[in-house]
Computed example of a mutant assay.
Amino acid sequence: MTRHTFAPLLTLGIIGLLLGSAPVLALKGDASAPIEVEADRLDLDERAGTAVYTGDVDIRQGSMRLTGARVEIQRNDQGQLARASATGERAYIEQKPAPDEPLVKGWGRTIVYHVAERRIEMIDRAELHKGDNTFVGGYLEYFLDRRVVQARAEAEGVEERQRVRMTLDPEQQGAQ
């Protein structure tokens, strides 16, 4: 496995990707932690503002992690991260929102993070774990700032209907 470092694009990308601007949504040390990327290949197009990592991609920064067979990071015209997508049989994203909270973990065949909206989409065999609460379906959306989950049985472009299932811990409901 080859280790690639592309600091300018990746620094903007990963810090915006999972941390965002609200300090309650991630550990304070995550933003200053080293960014580590492992992949078999990197295809970078600075003019288009894209970096595409392929081959068992693993991106980490502090408590944050994004994995997939392929991860694409797209910048906008101002050079800021606009979107990050991970695809694979089980793409994965995780983040520890605060020292006293458990990791938030998400899976799907596709995971898309929309930076401006601070929204994560998990598509096809989607699954989200927030503490002891679990959400499963064909399509899940998680809004970071509002901590809102929306689930659907069907996802665009996915033929198989995947019914929504939830397991909620009644003791945590008052804290959510």
Rank of each mutant, 00 (worst) to 15 (best):
V71P: 02
V37C: 06
P34H: 00
M166P: 00
V24T: 12
E127Y: 15
D100A: 11
A69Q: 15
Q176M: 11
Y92N: 09
I14S: 01
Q80V: 04
R163K: 12
I59D: 04
D132W: 09
F135L: 05
A153C: 04
D124F: 06
I59V: 09
I123W: 03
E72N: 07
V164N: 01
R83Q: 14
E171F: 12
L27D: 06
S21K: 15
R165G: 08
A155E: 03
A33T: 10
A153T: 00
A91I: 08
P34K: 02
R47C: 00
V136C: 07
L128K: 02
I111P: 04
V149H: 00
A91M: 10
Q61E: 04
Y139L: 12
M166Q: 04
T67A: 14
I15S: 10
E38R: 15
G13M: 04
E154I: 03
V57D: 05
Q150M: 10
V158E: 01
P23W: 13
G13C: 03
R90V: 09
F143T: 06
R125Q: 15
A91S: 14
T5N: 10
R119F: 02
A22K: 15
G49W: 13
G29F: 11
P8V: 05
L19I: 11
A86Y: 11
A116Y: 12
L42P: 01
V112A: 09
L168G: 02
L19Q: 14
I59E: 08
E101P: 00
G49F: 14
L66V: 08
G88A: 09
D77N: 12
E127Q: 14
E36W: 13
I73N: 02
E72W: 10
A153Q: 07
E159F: 04
G55V: 07
P34Y: 05
L12W: 04
D132Q: 15
R41D: 07
A51D: 04
F135P: 00
A175M: 07
G157T: 10
G108C: 08
R119L: 14
A98C: 05
